[in-house]
Design a protein around this nucleic acid. Structure first.
Lengths: 146, 146
DNA sequence: CTATCTGCAAACTTTTTGCATTGTA
DNA sequence: TACAATGCAAAAAGTTTGCAGATAG
């Protein structure tokens, strides 16, 4: 009997004395249907369904969910532009190359990321919550043009 | 006959029609004597030697140097903090774990980083300028306390 | 002499906070 | 009916830009 992400999240919110509001339910539904999303984008699409929802509420909800370990966050661009939030299980070993000239983003999967996580865990006694890995440089096209 | 970092940098600046100003010479000297430094720190120490130097000049100089491939930049913490600049050769395979509770930064070296760089290069025909890897979670102390 | 650099002040982007009000449990 | 959560407006933090004046080559 699997709990949905939304149910798990609500459980986690209640567990710490938090309350389930309409805004939070809406945000949970939207997070569940997007692989990885930033606060501003989340606010934009939430706003279409509930025009009263504010950006501070989006940020506060994301922090609440992250503190409860219901979502994780990371940057995917070397410029650390917007922080992206996601359900932990999703695309854990995918990182991104961002072209510094045209801005193109190329996703990249590597098993070495899992190995690095294990290496960290083996060497320092930390609890790893997030690992962000961002590559930057010139993409094939821009490399050719210059 | 090895050129110093400063001489190389000046050469690179001149090569693109740039000019060698007192501010730029001072910044180059300071960058050369620090492993990895952020704009605000660089401005602070530069300001002690030349109180007229401004933060925009520091940023503009860092961008000029980065465009000329004389320095590289990266973030070392997964939180939206400061960008760090450095001479490319320095501590290339060191990344950092930042504790989300106490802020402690634990540097961490792994040969897997070089392997990942090679894996990227082998798979996509990119020119890799920077790779940032930021780990976050609980440090040994904070993990114990909660 | 002229294009590049500079400092200053102000703008910008993303994220956070104070506060009075609303709404959940 | 308490205490958590909300919206608004304003602040914060890091970085960038416009502009008029200074300066390298």
């Amino acid at each position: 009997m699997l709990m949905t992400f939304q149910e798990q999240a609500k459980e986690a919110i209640r567990a710490t004395g938090g309350r389930i509001t309409g805004q939070r339910e809406l945000l949970l539904d939207l997070i569940a249907t997007h692989d990885e999303i930033d606060a501003e984008h989340l606010h934009r699409i939430a706003h279409q369904q509930d025009p009263t929802i504010s950006l501070p509420t989006v940020y506060r909800t994301l922090h609440t969910l992250e503190d409860a370990h219901v979502i994780t966050s990371r940057y995917i661009s070397a410029e650390h532009e917007r922080k992206l939030y996601r359900v932990p299980a999703k695309q854990d070993s995918t990182f991104h190359f961002t072209c510094r000239r045209c801005g193109q983003v190329i996703p990249f999967h590597s098993d070495l990321i899992e190995q690095i996580k294990q290496e960290i865990a083996a060497r320092i006694d930390i609890e790893l919550w997030t690992l962000c890995m961002c590559a930057g440089g010139l993409c094939p096209n821009c490399r050719e043009e210059r």
